[in-house]
């Protein structure tokens, strides 16, 4: 069975959103800064709710933030 992994562009999106800090994003999403760090490093796959909230903060569709790589 392929392991698969959810990858994301949060770091890039933060950069394009006036260099938003991890702490600012965490506050807007309602999680801790450590969780944002873990998501950015692909060490944690967030719940659908948090994933959608992140996309909402950046004002972009969900699939511009997250993508699934079945071979990662």
């Amino acid at each position: 069975m392929a392991k698969g992994h959810i990858l994301n562009n949060i770091r890039t999106l933060r950069f394009h959103a006036s260099e938003m800090t991890q702490q600012e994003l965490a506050a807007k999403v309602g999680v801790t800064r450590q969780t944002i760090i873990a998501i950015e490093q692909n060490k944690y796959s967030p719940s659908l709710e948090v994933a959608f909230r992140i996309a909402h903060v950046f004002g972009v569709p969900f699939d511009q933030v997250f993508r699934y790589d079945p071979y990662a």
Partner: peptide, 8 residues
């Protein structure tokens, strides 16, 4: 102090 989130 930080409130626990879903990862915690």
């Amino acid at each position: 102090a930080e409130k626990k989130d879903e990862r915690d």
